Simulated assay, not measured.
Amino acid sequence: MRFFVSGEHYRKALLNACILLFLGYLGLFAVSSALMYFHHMDLTPASVVSYYLGSEQEFRPPRSYESLLEVSHFHLFAQGMLVLTLVHLLLMTELPVWLKVSLGGLSFLSAVANEAAGWLVRFVHPVFAWMKVGTFLLLEFSLISLIFCVGASLVRKRPRPRPWHRQLGT
């Protein structure tokens, strides 16, 4: 990722195109993630409680320990890699350090908290449904923000670095 720091990304059109396509792919991932969430629940705590604790009216059993474990096993790895990749790209931008640290920390925290919230609703107390709704929104916001910040940094016009022979005055 030295190409961000050294300014080489202005000369690496193919690499820029690959990263921008990757960001577009991640944008589709964020949309599909939201669609999956809204397929099962909405932004009300009652829908979250119904999803995790079951519903007699809808003949839906509570989520089992095994099903939560399977989802968590995959999500903890995949979301960790996703956030790590996006934060790594963000660290190479020229954005202020406070923004990089805040957005990176928020992304990791919201991903872990979102996963934990389902367990807490199911096995601790339904009041954690508020946490599930909030962390879902926070995770979606942080992912979209990371995608936007990295993408904007790639397409933003900056002065091209001067060739080395012109810098020496020859």
Score class of each variant (00 low, 15 high):
S32Q: 13
M81I: 11
H39M: 01
K12D: 08
T93M: 03
S145L: 09
Y25Q: 03
E115Y: 05
F4E: 04
M1F: 09
P61V: 05
W98E: 12
I19H: 03
C149H: 08
Y37M: 05
T135V: 08
V127R: 13
H40V: 00
M36R: 13
A113I: 05
W119A: 03
H75D: 15
P62V: 02
V5L: 14
E70T: 10
T135S: 11
V5E: 15
Y37I: 02
V133D: 07
G151K: 02
P161I: 02
G7T: 04
S72Y: 02
H9K: 08
G134W: 00
L15G: 11
T85V: 13
L26Q: 08
K12T: 04
A152P: 00
A117W: 00
S72C: 04
P126N: 05
L120M: 15
V5M: 13
R156E: 13
G134F: 00
F3N: 03
F77S: 13
A116H: 05
V112W: 05
L86A: 10
W119E: 02
R11F: 14
M131T: 09
R60N: 04
S142D: 01
T135P: 00
A30H: 06
S107C: 08
L137E: 12
F29L: 13
S67H: 03
L15K: 09
L26R: 04
E66N: 07
A13I: 06
L89Y: 04
S107W: 01
L69W: 09
E115N: 14
E58C: 06
V101P: 06
S6D: 14
E56D: 10
P159K: 08
V150H: 00
F59R: 14
L103S: 00
G24F: 02
L137I: 15
P61Q: 09
V31C: 09
F128K: 03
W130Y: 15
G80C: 01
L69G: 08
K157D: 06
Y65L: 12
W119R: 04
A17V: 03
L53E: 01
L103A: 03
N16V: 07
P126K: 03
E94D: 15
P163F: 02
R156H: 13
G118L: 01
F148S: 12
S110G: 00
L82K: 02
L91Q: 06
R11E: 09
L138I: 04
P161S: 05
V83E: 00
R156A: 15
